[in-house]
Design a protein around this nucleic acid. Sequence first.
DNA 1: ATCCTGATACTACGAATTGTAGTATATTTG
DNA 2: CAAATATACTACAATTCGTAGTATCAGGAT
Lengths: 144, 144
Amino acid sequence: MNIKKYNVNEEGLNRFFGPLEAKIMEVLWSSDDGIAAKEVQELVNKEHPITFNAVMTVMNRLFEKGHLQKNSQGRGRGRISTYNAVQTKEQFINEQTKAVTRGLMSEFGDLVVNHMVDALEDSDPELLAKIQEKISAMQSRKQP
Amino acid sequence: MNIKKYNVNEEGLNRFFGPLEAKIMEVLWSSDDGIAAKEVQELVNKEHPITFNAVMTVMNRLFEKGHLQKNSQGRGRGRISTYNAVQTKEQFINEQTKAVTRGLMSEFGDLVVNHMVDALEDSDPELLAKIQEKISAMQSRKQP
DNA sequence: ATCCTGATACTACGAATTGTAGTATATTTG
DNA sequence: CAAATATACTACAATTCGTAGTATCAGGAT
């Protein structure tokens, strides 16, 4: 449940997964109930051609890494194996951004803070205001 | 000059480089003038046994990736090749933390801000105050 | 001048990661 | 029983990084 490499130049889930892994997780997160490998393959296949085997193998790796849960019954053709994401997408993203953020902060705190505030100045002044509110709330909670 | 993978579970320069790469860059950054591969090997070898070839190969990769500059003259035994880091360590760290921070902010801005402020509440309240100052300075500069 | 040594360079291999392909298994259906 | 099919297991290619083997080529010793 722990991503080792964060891909700096990618976008979205591709920051945390390989491209096929990301598409598969997206499908898993889009389905409330468990979903069969075949179904996942059909859905991914709509975007770009992919064999069932490729999907199957990568799903099993995601399972081994702890991102997916597997529920199997039966064997052979009649086998039913459904997969579920272990975390919601929100939980996953939250956990990963937390890991990356806290790691960065612990060693490069002041640099990171400056980069962040600069980034917000350009693109998201509202978030700047939220930061101030959050800090003020903290401080008044600590020293009333 | 652009790191692709950020290693979430590592420390220090190992976040941006492999372990041997990191040790080599550290040596390069510790020497003001250019330094020969042999000398680098001798220095790294004090920490843990490493062959000249290993150091040489990894240094050439760092050169190909643009992190090192090479100055060669002569050939064969008498050859002198000295290596320099292209950026200072400070420049490098600044650039990389900026890339990671801005990438995170652009997609997960509010999450990252929350994680960061939470992290600072525990470990570095002074930095929290600096953030407020920086934001205030910005805002008064914009809306005088 | 010849040979050996030593600094550098080039090539190759092993492990890990991720995408892809081939084959095996076993059961449901015809 | 045989064919088709959902799943599983194994293998291979490309990339990255650490490591090892070998080649090159000038300076010094003989």
